[in-house]
Write a protein that binds this DNA or RNA. Structure first.
Lengths: 302, 302
DNA sequence: CGCTAACCATATATTTTAAATATGGAATTG
DNA sequence: CAATTCCATATTTAAAATATATGGTTAGCG
């Protein structure tokens, strides 16, 4: 059985007439008769009762008509579905967010815009840290990650800068410097710093350390925070001070103040990373949209 | 697109290899490549990524694989469905019951047995009278009717006798004859009779009248009953007496007694009727079963 | 590093299949 | 009863699927 048989069968059922159905199908009547005979043979039953003036469906034929129509409809649905996928209008993207990137307005705006433009694509968010995300990308567990570049050993991965976020000093409200309008890093030489483990975001970590060195000191390190976001409550608890990406300052706590840094300001860039050999059209659209937003600058109005 | 394309596509997706898929399909590899190219062309997207050692589905291909499998399954379901219809294992029979035939044990047994043997066939019962049922058969509103033969103008209809039911005298409990073990019809010459309108079952009506004439009298007719079953309450209400098919005596009422008639006993046969040009296999099975039961007699053990 | 093997694509020949043409037969219909 | 309608059959032709032969690319391996 082929779809042709179904198309022919439906035409005859609708016309109640082989000759007219053949015209409608753009073929001659004899091959139509022959195809139907084939079909009836395969099904083991006759589908039409041939009367002198017209043909009519048998009971079996009537049952088959409904099924045949349903099958052709399903074929059409499958066609348009596959095309939606190939155009990137349908699909699935598993997205990982490294620590504190999901606070960033640019990041949430990108997600929001993408969803608005491609509502058929399912986005599956997941939180982790940069190191684990890079691993997830490699293993294929996730398709895209918001990370803090640079990411080590990025062979096989593409990275694209999304935001050049700057950092702020985060310190207890009671701290002697907490009322300053801005601070040079050198003013913090004697402080105890709360940092996250280098392993979870080596790029950002090294950024910090080299900023300290440029300011002329090596930071005294206190207790380590398990992740970037948990630095804030630890400052509140009195473990020390820290530098955090500006978007972290959205975590407003009574006991913590954020103070801008005078130039040179250490950067906390955010980028997206994905496998080079990734062929998802949906993902390509996502990356394209990110590049577009990046070019139009952070103050674009979509 | 033809089903062939789907079969081929699925085989390749499963084997991840054109050559092996071709073997499995019993064709050579080049025509397989060609058919897939056709399919990809029609869909406007590639379904496989050709790697050096194997092929793998694109996203669009993965979506299409699920659909293709569903389509082939639906085709198989349609096939077996049409075959069930052609074997009479599926279908629909609209059945009409003439007045008081649905009391008859043979009738209910037939229905029960048929349902047990062909559970896939939907039976749609409907109550009416013989005259309306004959009309319903002609117009195609019903497929089969339990009637009281003979039915007038049965051209185009087949009738088959099912039960040779006899009749009983039905009279008020207070009637002077109500305690008799049996009665000859002639004993009822002076009574007032409640009959149904001749139009709703002419055969049965004429049967009755000629039985009266054979017994040597013309019955005095009282109030007419709207249908056979409503004769019983009218007797109870004192309108007169009547003769009713034995199965009507299942309607037990305090005020009504049923007394057998001494030979010759008037008959109240029940038959099934259906269009001669009816082609339903399910219906043919029903008729065959009825004939079978008729031959094995009323005391058969199915 | 070159050789082999794996594997799909392409080109061409062949076979199969669908479609076209011609015609016949059955059954209304006027 | 002739004309018409309409499907089936037989036969030819065209198209399409499949087979055969071969080439190109890449991974794997001595």
């Amino acid at each position: 059985m082929e779809l042709r048989h179904l198309r022919y069968f439906i035409a005859i059922a609708e016309e109640q007439n082989f000759t007219r159905a053949a015209e409608r199908l753009g073929i001659q009547q004899p091959p139509l008769s022959q195809q139907i005979r084939q079909l009836e043979q395969e099904l083991g039953t006759s589908l039409f009762r041939r009367l002198t003036r017209k043909v009519e469906l048998t009971e079996a034929g009537a049952s088959f008509l409904a099924d045949a129509r349903a099958i052709l409809e399903q074929v059409e649905r499958a066609k348009s579905s596959v095309q939606r996928f190939s155009r990137g209008e349908a699909g699935r993207i598993r997205i990982g967010f490294a620590g504190a990137t999901y606070f960033q307005p640019e990041v949430t705006a990108l997600i929001r815009d993408y969803r608005a433009r491609y509502p058929g694509v399912q986005l599956l968010p997941e939180q982790s840290n940069t190191a684990l995300l890079v691993e997830g990308l490699r293993s294929g567990e996730i398709d895209l990650a918001f990370v803090r570049p640079p990411i080590g050993g990025a062979d096989g991965l593409n990275t694209q800068l999304l935001v050049e976020e700057d950092m702020l000093v985060a310190l207890p409200a009671a701290h002697r410097l907490s009322r300053q309008a801005a601070l040079p890093l050198s003013a913090l030489a004697e402080e105890t710093f709360i940092l996250f483990p280098r392993a979870i975001s080596p790029g950002l970590y090294d950024n910090l350390i080299s900023a300290f060195h440029q300011a002329g000191f090596s930071p005294r390190l206190g207790q380590e925070a398990p992740q970037i976001a948990s630095i804030v409550p630890m400052i509140d608890a009195g473990f020390g001070i820290s530098l955090v990406p500006r978007s972290v300052s959205q975590i407003r706590t009574e006991g913590v103040r954020y103070v801008p840094i005078t130039a040179p300001v250490p950067a906390a860039p955010i980028g997206i990373a994905y496998r080079q050999d990734q062929h998802s059209v949906a993902l390509a659209h996502f990356v394209a949209l990110a590049r577009e937003k990046r070019q139009h600058g952070p103050a674009r109005q979509t």
